[in-house]
């Protein structure tokens, strides 16, 4: 195995309290991700896979357990520290794209750099390059409502990558897309993986999880299976990666 993992969680639990009813969304999960891995988290709705992704992405905090990210114990960090991690070390891709309405593709992609306080001239240069990389050079000035679903998701991916994150988190990124766009988007994720990016993707679709090298299955708030994906087993057998 590699050296230090990029992130590791130990015995993470998450309870939701609504009135007197306590829902155990996560019942003690251990999980490690190494630099350069492409992992799919699968499971039915209610399995805890989304809660897991939100906690990994610092959008939500665990009820108990430990979370080390990039060598830091994150459980003691403040809200603003976490915002900085989300801004500089993470990139999110959501099912519903989550672009700012009435805001051009270019400005959407600039947004994380604005919060990072990067020089405006550099913002525009980098945002244009990032949009070109996902094949949207001709759509810089368009607002989200003028873009197709596939195009919107490509803008979201460009935005996720803009601050050179250590980890890309995708929550059902193809859930709102047709099969053609799904293939295009997954092609981009494959590319990113090949370039060495670390990716965690939450999905319930096999044709999506097949793109990952590892699959983690969850059920009732626990991990019950970890395996190498079939596609990567096939690749590993026939054409070993360098």
């Amino acid at each position: 195995m590699h050296k230090e993992p990029l992130l590791s969680i130990k015995d993470i639990k998450k309870d939701y309290v609504t009135g007197e009813i306590v829902t155990h969304a996560l019942r003690g999960v251990d999980f490690e991700v190494h630099e350069g891995e492409f992992i799919a988290i699968m499971g039915h709705s209610g399995s805890g896979k989304s809660t897991m992704l939100h906690i990994l992405g610092f959008l939500d905090t665990p009820s108990s357990g430990q979370y080390f990210f990039d060598g830091t114990d994150t459980t003691k960090l403040t809200e603003d520290d976490l915002a900085e991690i989300r801004n500089k070390k993470l990139g999110f891709v959501f099912q519903a794209f989550n672009l700012l309405p009435r805001t051009s593709a270019l400005d959407n992609v600039r947004m994380p750099m604005i919060y990072a306080g990067i020089d405006e001239k550099i913002q525009f240069e980098k945002a244009k390059k990032a949009l070109a990389a996902v094949g949207l050079s001709h759509r810089l000035k368009n607002n989200p409502n003028e873009l197709s679903g596939g195009e919107q998701q490509r803008v979201a991916i460009a935005r996720a990558l803009i601050n050179n994150p250590r980890l890309i988190l995708a929550d059902e990124p193809t859930g709102n897309l047709d099969s053609k766009s799904t293939e295009e988007i997954m092609g981009i994720f494959d590319d990113l993986h090949r370039k060495g990016h670390t990716i965690i993707i939450v999905t319930h679709e096999d044709n999506v999880s097949d793109h990952a090298e590892k699959i983690v299955r969850m059920k009732d708030g626990m991990v019950f299976e970890r395996k190498i994906s079939e596609k990567h087993e096939y690749i590993a057998h026939n054409k070993p990666r360098d």
């Binding site: 603003d80 989300r86 989550n98 994380p112």
Partner: peptide, 16 residues
């Protein structure tokens, strides 16, 4: 609210 959540997800701090 949703937009605020998104802005926080991509790194907006409270004061932002």
């Amino acid at each position: 609210t949703h937009e605020i959540g998104l802005r926080k997800a991509i790194g907006a701090k409270r004061q932002d």
